[in-house]
């Protein structure tokens, strides 16, 4: 391996076996992250989910890019449950109208924001809180681990949907942030367990002993040495869970204990469409399809990231 001085000079010769390195000719040591990124780029699943996600996130940030319609404009006389006009791509009547005479397409586009915000914020909060508890429990062990693990068990005893239902029922006016709170309180345990497991594995590694021998403090060992090596499984679990949170938000809204009417959300719209399911299934199917595609995109992304991070599969 050390004798390959010729390689950088003999650049034009295409080396089929050598890994393609666009900028530098040398074989630099790659970090775990760079390695994973190279794997990811080669995965078609990653690109499918990435394209879908960019679309939905763009929709959440700037819905007016996709539709010029007003999601709250209701024309009951003209449009009551009007069927979709599939040829009118990107027009207000593309996906027909709902029971209030509102454009299903405009509402679906504007509904992306609530779902994406809930999904992303819950995932961030859960990862930080669960990750923190998991790290403490895994690294320090002993009574702290016993205590934190029992607390995790206690919250695990209550299913996410049930806990969020009981908690959100207390709020008369629920916004996106109350839903985020409810889902976070009952969602952090899985991450805590994954993080705890990963930290326990990592803390016995030689590089941790080495760092300690060199006099690194607890904070430095935890955040500079253990965390970067333990974060992989956490990222995978949180990416997949993100889709689950979006789905749970929609379920809560469907049950009438999630988001409420002035907020436009897929869950609220699906819930409202129940009553007209028999006459106009499109009012339910369109937001449901968008919702499912978003969830699917996050699951695919999580799968792709796991494949990239897991060296066993190479």
């Amino acid at each position: 391996m050390p004798e390959k001085t010729l390689a950088p000079e003999a650049n034009p010769a295409p080396e089929a076996a050598a890994p393609a390195q666009p900028n530098s000719g040398q074989n630099k040591a790659r970090s775990l992250g760079q390695d994973a990124w190279r794997e990811l780029r080669a995965s078609p699943l990653f690109w499918i989910s990435a394209v879908l996600l960019v679309l939905f996130i763009l929709m959440a940030i700037a819905p007016s890019l996709f539709t010029s319609g007003d999601p709250r404009h209701a024309d009951l006389r003209g449009h009551y449950l009007a069927p979709p006009s599939w040829s009118h791509v990107f027009q207000d009547d593309w996906f027909g109208y709902n029971g209030q005479g509102q454009s299903v397409y405009a509402r679906t586009v504007y509904g992306a924001r609530a779902s994406i915000i809930v999904g992303v914020c819950v995932t961030l909060a859960v990862t930080v809180i669960g990750g923190f508890f998991g790290m403490l429990a895994g690294y320090f062990g002993g009574w702290l681990d016993a205590l934190l693990s029992r607390i995790t068990d206690i919250f695990f005893g209550i299913p996410l949907l049930l806990g969020a239902l009981v908690m959100l029922q207390a709020f008369a006016h629920r916004t996106v942030w109350t839903v985020v709170l409810g889902l976070t309180v009952f969602g952090w345990m899985q991450i805590a367990r994954v993080m705890r497991g990963a930290v326990i594995t990592q803390k016995q590694a030689d590089f941790v002993t080495a760092a300690r021998a060199l006099g690194a403090g607890t904070g430095r060992i935890l955040f500079r040495h253990i965390l970067p090596n333990a974060i992989g499984p956490v990222i995978v679990v949180s990416t997949i869970a993100l889709g689950g949170y979006i789905s749970t938000e929609a379920t809560l809204s469907y049950l009438g204990i999630g988001l409420q009417d002035p907020v436009i959300s897929w869950g609220v719209d699906i819930s409202a469409a129940q009553t007209t399911l028999r006459d106009a299934p499109h009012v339910l199917l369109v937001p449901a399809t968008f919702l499912s595609l978003t969830v699917l995109a996050f699951i695919l992304l999580g799968d792709a990231v796991r494949d990239a991070l897991d060296p066993k599969l190479r």
Binding site: S247, A250, Y254, Q274, L277, L293, V295
Partner: peptide
Amino acid sequence: TLVVVSIPVFVIGFLTQF
């Protein structure tokens, strides 16, 4: 399985019922 995992249960329920 991916399709089933992505569709929320209440939507699956409605579709089946419908």
